[in-house]
């Protein structure tokens, strides 16, 4: 039940964000400062989540595994070259597999 409640709460926030400009009509004026903050939030959140996944385990910071770092690097390069987010998995996972196999 807690899972459904969490999703519903997250969905409600998401819908409020989507509909805020429709609800506000002409009352809300975008400022450059707000627009900049909004646009910079995505890279900040994504980078922090990646760092958390690679470096923080059970609240403790530890060195990342080489295979994981290499996989993330390959994913970034692949997406930058193709413009396709799906390429992240297609490039990252094989790099992880190869390095893991070589390490055995």
């Amino acid at each position: 039940m807690i899972v459904i409640v969490t999703f519903v709460a997250a969905a409600a926030v998401t819908y409020l964000l989507r509909s805020s400009m429709v609800l506000a009509g002409d009352r809300l004026q975008e400022s450059d400062g707000v627009r900049t903050a909004v646009e910079l939030t995505a890279p900040a959140v994504l980078a922090a989540m990646i760092a958390g996944a690679l470096l923080v385990h059970h609240g403790t910071v530890s060195a990342p595994a080489l295979a994981e770092v290499a996989a993330i690097g390959a994913a970034v390069v692949a997406v930058r070259r193709t413009g396709n987010v799906g390429a992240a998995l297609a490039a990252g996972l094989p790099v992880y597999w190869v390095i893991q196999a070589l390490a055995v």
Binding site: L40, L46, A47, A53, G86
Partner: peptide, 26 residues
């Protein structure tokens, strides 16, 4: 999940400012 986030990050970084933001946040 981290790979998917990395892919989205790669698409959301368009210049030096976003790169600094991402590095600083990490």
């Amino acid at each position: 999940a981290p790979l998917a986030f990395a892919g989205m990050l790669a698409k959301s970084v368009h210049g030096r400012t976003e790169l600094v933001v991402a590095t600083t946040a990490a």
